[in-house]
Design a protein around this nucleic acid. Sequence first.
DNA 1: GAGTGGTCTAGACCACGCC
DNA 2: GCGTGGTCTAGACCACTCA
Lengths: 253, 253
Amino acid sequence: MTAGSGQTSHTRVAAALRTMIETGELQPGDQLPTQEELTAEHGVSRTVIRQAMATLSAEGLIDRVRGGGTYVRVKRPVFHISATYVTQQGDEPRATWTTEAAKHGLVGTQTITYVGETIANDEIASLLGIAPDSSIYTRKRIMEINGDPVQFADSYYPYHIAHGTELARTAKLRGGTIASLERLGYQLGNCHEIVRARPATDDEKRMLQLKDGVPVLVQRRTTYTTDGIPVEVSVSVLAGDRHEMHYTLPAHA
Amino acid sequence: MTAGSGQTSHTRVAAALRTMIETGELQPGDQLPTQEELTAEHGVSRTVIRQAMATLSAEGLIDRVRGGGTYVRVKRPVFHISATYVTQQGDEPRATWTTEAAKHGLVGTQTITYVGETIANDEIASLLGIAPDSSIYTRKRIMEINGDPVQFADSYYPYHIAHGTELARTAKLRGGTIASLERLGYQLGNCHEIVRARPATDDEKRMLQLKDGVPVLVQRRTTYTTDGIPVEVSVSVLAGDRHEMHYTLPAHA
DNA sequence: GAGTGGTCTAGACCACGCC
DNA sequence: GCGTGGTCTAGACCACTCA
């Protein structure tokens, strides 16, 4: 039960380095000893050192730079996502990606990557309350902060709602999709939001520039009219290290 | 640019296996070829095969069982967490962990691991609107589903609110902490919830039995009186592969 | 006991950052 | 060009599962 206890060599090395990071002996941004140095220090092969570092990297504690060394990971600034994109406050204009970013001194932009008619998969059909394989309209966009892509946002509309409207055209919608639905005459009531976390896929890692171990948040939102008819389903995938979801709820409904 | 294109050997092997999983050629629960078989098939060393499998494991696609083979990961059932623990619907009794679990045919239990006086750290103090290092009361519990621990839930109360009350005693609270606060005479107004995702720590992986790559959800909730005074801060850490957060929001506030 | 995945070694070469 | 991390080999032994 000495300081070096543990099942395996790489577990012991990982624990030793983890402790140095957790106690602050190594600060965010600090460089770790090189793999060669650690090999000598712990009297193990480089394979063991690399296994330990893979563990710490997956835990989000370190970053390894090919040719440049290994460093304690620095947390990236977190962007607050609140339901104000949907929930309008009194007579104020509805918040948009750009206005919310500006509030935090950031530049929020978006790129529309696809708008068109598609076939609803089971999940979207179920959320929209329509038959699977129904025709729908799909809008796909990538949201960026200071030029970095940080979020994918796809919206889905029943065919008859979007057909022939601005929702079916490849152009930005003034005030966002919710404002657009209201312009089309829909009285919006509640929306239902589901948030999950999961490991990033290979594509997401590349597109969102996610470091080792960083998960994604998946937000699924269905917006209903006051009559309870679903008019929009939105599925967003957000970089897990850059986003926080904020909600304000009443203690009594 | 053949089917085997890609930067490195382990990337190619990973891509080949990933494709087999994504296309359904390998179904959840199916066993993958052994490392030895893949070594022969791809003409590379076992190190390369293991590197590819480490990647897929971190992506949540496969499970490796020492001595037992490698399998396509089977998704675990997801438990729905909704704000009904806090937001009471009319005159119905407030939902609790146990009643919500029962609604899904599951057995929800909780274990209280700590109740007592502590010192607020900066984060909790800030959320409670009190000075850092103030005395507070802390309640820590572990929530279980069918006996498996799936969530840590810690609650924090300003000293004067909990001192001498049932909140300061090591016993379960009838109807949950929110119901308890109401019994103590507090008129509750809104609560504010913040949800994040991050890689699991070593401890969390062990305690929540999280497989490779599975992140955790962190939920921070502050409950206020109708006068806007914070009375409770709750910080929960949830197994990312077993939980979904549900919210219902009005389109107009 | 056979099969399978985990650990570990020793060594070679490559790719990249930095001076 | 040197230093650092990434890739890869060949081989050995261990720990665990399952028949």
